[in-house]
């Protein structure tokens, strides 16, 4: 009952934002070109938002997603630039592109595993541990590149990244959909998903129930790292380069998406369907605002912050009401 209400609320919000933008900028907003460009923009942060959501469900948070994404992308870029000579034919580049992607994914997994170990084995609070890993990964990325962008990627890579399926859907969009579906299914139906929710609700009870807390946490942060590295690869394809400080504002934006999408910041509750809707809402808002020349880009920060706080206020007021109702319903059911 509760989940449906949250999703319904988000759908209404999505419709309102869409209608508003369509009404104010009809010639620009409701166009194929705009939808095409939106589909290219949101997958990178949308995928990271899913990663952060997972960690928030287990009662933590991963503030290191952007650092992980950039470090993974830089490693892949270094490999590609070093191994593929300029102007090499696609056949020659393809195995290296595959290898670079694998390297990036492995890097994401390792980054996540490290954060997971800090949290589960060394008992560092997730906020601090991932503040630390964000600094560390970004720092390593700066250190090995001297802070310079890594460009000169083989043409094949950006071509692949910009492939459109059915002449409409970019590869990155499909990857986002696939990730959202797979993670959503895992959370709602798989054993591991249930364990994540339970761990996020009460870690001690999870320990006594034999769920294996350390392993759940490490795997959760590895998943978050993996998703981040996928986002890193997408960012690299879009910018046609990799840099240590790409996408810095994404951290906040992803937390915002997670909270807006109904993930409980205290852990234990939330669904990927909500997160996906929140991604769409934000993208509509952001693309729509871009169509107003008088609005500075920096107002987006204001709106992000404002929407985040509004989402918190609304969610907490509604949660309080629902808790009251649940207790009353429970009291009635027990008596009956």
């Amino acid at each position: 009952m509760k989940k449906d209400q949250n999703l319904a609320r988000l759908l209404v919000m999505l419709a309102v934002v869409f209608a508003l933008m369509a009404a104010l900028r009809p010639g620009q907003f409701v166009t194929m070109a705009n939808f095409g460009s939106m589909m290219r923009q949101f997958p990178e942060y949308g995928i990271m938002a899913i990663g952060i959501s997972l960690t928030m469900i287990t009662g933590g948070i991963d503030l290191g997603v952007v650092g992980t994404a950039n470090l993974s992308a830089i490693l892949a870029a270094k490999l590609l630039i070093g191994a593929v000579p300029r102007g090499a034919p696609p056949e020659q580049a393809l195995p290296f592109v595959a290898l670079a992607a694998l390297l990036a994914l492995a890097c994401g997994l390792a980054c996540g595993a490290f954060a997971g170990l800090l949290i589960s084995r060394f008992k560092i609070p997730a906020i601090l541990a991932t503040l630390g890993t964000q600094q560390l990964y970004t720092g390593i990325a700066i250190g090995i590149t001297n802070g310079r962008p890594q460009s000169g990627l083989p043409l094949l890579y950006s071509n692949l990244g910009n492939t459109e399926f059915l002449g409409l859907f970019p590869l990155s969009f499909l990857i986002f959909l696939l990730a959202a579906l797979a993670i959503g299914l895992m959370l709602s139906r798989a054993r591991f998903g249930t364990c994540m929710y339970m761990l996020g609700t009460n870690p001690k009870a999870a320990q006594y129930a034999g769920l294996g807390n350390a392993s759940i946490l490490v795997r959760t942060y590895m998943l978050s790292g993996l998703l981040s590295s996928v986002a890193g690869l997408i960012m690299m394809a879009r910018a046609n380069s990799a840099k240590a400080e790409y996408g810095t504002p994404y951290t906040l934006q992803c937390v915002l998406i997670a909270v807006l999408g109904g993930i409980d910041p205290n852990g234990g509750f939330g669904k990927i369907a909500g997160v996906t809707l929140a991604v769409f809402i934000l993208q509509f808002l952001s693309s729509g605002l871009n169509m107003f020349n008088s609005i500075s880009n920096f107002y987006r920060d204001v709106i992000w912050g404002g929407v985040l706080i509004l989402a918190l206020v609304v969610n907490s007021l509604l949660a309080r009401r629902e808790a009251r109702l649940a207790v009353r319903r429970g009291a009635r059911a027990t008596r009956a």
Partner: peptide, 12 residues
Amino acid sequence: TEGLFLPQTIER
């Protein structure tokens, strides 16, 4: 604190 996941469902 050790036995139950209080806000989660009876089923879970």
